[in-house]
Design a protein around this nucleic acid. Structure first.
Lengths: 255, 255
DNA sequence: CGATGGTTTGACATCGGTCAACGCAGGTGG
DNA sequence: CCACCTGCGTTGACCGATGTCAAACCATCG
């Protein structure tokens, strides 16, 4: 871009170094410093931003790197023979992608950007090498992986709920928590995914999700305007996560 | 226990060593040999068998070890404040438990034996140490973890299906595949879990699961006798995994 | 032999899926 | 600048798969 190449490289290097990254504490470098951090930094490559609906990797492609979201967001999903898809996760900054490729050396799912997104690319073979030399890195890698396992478990618990209302409530509460970790306002969600994608993730159809947003708004829980969701009453939302659907909305039976 | 302590220790040591274990290729020692295998062997402890409905670990308990199922089977599940539970997985020999504790150093879920079960206990701190010295072990550890992530993803895909019939079919097919990996007859399943547990895992109620077993039997797909399930027609089962429920089975309406 | 808990079956109600139509916003081209 | 178009989102009417409730069945165990 500029003329003074050396200068610019230094700056861009600095700006994208792990040491200067706001996500440091959530990511691989946590608890790593000094020389070790430089070694990690050396292998982390930045990729040019991925545009909306562009794929980061596809099923079957060889595992070259793990990826950590830096800004923006992605979804991962699998598609079966009939072309039906299941979204496995939405990935926000600080979250890692590509784990399911380690076992077979091939990616199992598709990762696709939901908006313009930047990721840090961590070549897997070199990451393994450095992890052997930096115990804290090995430990932190396992920690980050474990967090992804916990996230899948949350997703499973959500899918186990038999009422659509609980599923959406749980999703929103969880997303709010992830926002908090990122120091964003946990009451003001900007959904990067479409209603279709959200419905698929929740194991519902789009009409149901749409109706639920309307209902939540009528109940005074949310304020919904397209992709912008404001959580008006967190306590009510919390309650909806485990509602035995005593029919708060539909109650025909008398007391 | 016995009188000739040395002798007995040798024998039990040998019998439970990784080198002599039939699961070796599925487990941590895969691709590890010689001196390195001995080092792994040294840290792996055996636990006395766990009886049915006994817990291996509880939520909140500190992470001391990862566990690999040696024989028998377990379930892992979470319980919320209201006492509702969601089963996260059924674990057969060769599968690892405890991953979700790495992030927080505390177990997140309960692991409970479904039958008399033996596990290998791998103290986590020592595993980490040895993994630093044996690159192949670090790699294999990551591989085994990745397999568990893949398994969670399978579970999610199953939960995303909106028809109970598909869910059960997918579960049975998947279980059959796991049997094959263990060199068991993939057509003869012995379910270690109750109908309640299975229903919970599938996100259904027990009556639905029961009816489905009956239906599958009537369709000539399965032969069901209590916990013993014989897959009579694997191709039909395969087809049911993606059935658009064209009503093949229920058709009560007259022609 | 009866008690107990898991399993199956039946009758019924309902939540959420299906189908259809409309509304809304953003983008494109005249 | 406006008009159209397209895709996403919302709303309504309807129906069926699955949950709920209840009872019977069955195997195991003391």
């Amino acid at each position: 871009m500029g003329s003074d190449v050396g200068q610019i490289l230094d700056i861009s290097r600095l700006r994208r170094s792990c040491g200067a990254c706001g996500l440091q504490q959530l990511c691989l470098p946590a608890a790593i410093a000094g020389e070790d951090l430089r070694r990690l930094d050396d292998i982390v490559q930045s990729k040019r931003p991925i545009d909306r609906s562009q794929a980061l990797f596809l099923p079957g492609s060889p595992l070259q790197a793990l990826y950590v979201v830096r800004s923006g967001s992605l979804k991962t999903f699998v598609t079966n023979e009939q072309g039906e898809t299941q979204i496995l996760g939405f990935h926000l900054p600080g979250e890692i992608l590509g784990l399911d490729a380690i076992s077979t050396d091939r990616h199992q799912c598709t990762a696709e950007a939901l908006e313009r997104t930047t990721v840090c690319e961590v070549p897997f073979s070199r990451l393994s090498q450095v992890a052997l030399q930096v115990p804290e890195l090995q430990r932190q890698l396992l920690r980050v992986i474990s967090r992804e396992v916990m996230r899948d478990h949350e997703h499973l618990v959500m899918m186990g709920r038999r009422h659509a209302q609980e599923r959406l409530a749980i999703f929103l509460k969880s997303l709010s928590g992830r926002y908090a970790r990122l120091k964003r306002d946990p009451a003001l969600l900007t959904l990067p995914m479409s209603r279709y994608e959200l419905a698929n993730y929740l194991g519902l159809v789009v009409e149901t999700v749409s109706r639920l947003f309307t209902r939540f708004q009528q109940m005074g829980v949310l304020e919904v305007r397209r992709k912008t969701i404001r959580i008006v009453d967190p306590r009510k939302l919390e309650a909806l996560c485990a509602e035995q659907h005593e029919g708060a909305g539909l109650a025909v039976r008398e007391a």
